[in-house]
């Protein structure tokens, strides 16, 4: 029986084949819920916190997940290999790099006042 991944934020779940990382399993099924970035453990867009279950992590950039965070269950879905059913919360999000509706310039929740050398 395949492992199931439950995403708390959207109360959705999907199966994950043996040995696959969580993000690849989600993408293969055309499912959404976890933002997809580099798929290489480098950008942090798919950051999650594992709430329940056994797993192992492949190499993750410390710029995205510190050693302390990793010990607390934080991971990147693209490097998260489940070893049992997992319940997780999505932490990462895609930046809104150029949100024209919000003004000239906008990034994440940062107000549209970019540093500007006068």
């Amino acid at each position: 029986m395949s492992i199931r991944i439950h995403i708390e934020n959207c109360d959705d779940s999907f199966p994950c084949p043996d040995g696959s990382n969580v993000l690849r399993a989600m993408e293969c099924l055309g499912r959404r819920g976890i933002p997809v970035g580099c798929r290489g453990g480098g950008c942090g867009v798919c950051k999650v916190k594992v709430l329940d279950g056994r797993y192992r992590n492949e190499a993750i950039s410390r710029a995205c997940v510190s050693a302390e965070e990793e010990a607390e269950g934080y991971s990147l879905a693209c490097k998260l290999i489940p070893e049992s059913d997992l319940s997780l919360r999505v932490i990462g999000k895609m930046a809104r790099s150029f949100d024209i509706s919000r003004g000239a310039f906008h990034f994440y929740g940062v107000p549209a006042t970019a540093p500007h050398r006068s």
Partner: peptide, 25 residues
């Protein structure tokens, strides 16, 4: 100009792509 940023970056589909714009290392 930023109102034409879609085709400026991706000329064919003329749309911005958040992953392209916001995923960095």
């Amino acid at each position: 100009t930023d109102d034409q940023l879609g085709p400026a970056i991706f000329y064919h589909d003329r749309k911005l792509n958040e992953a392209f714009l916001s995923v960095v290392t």
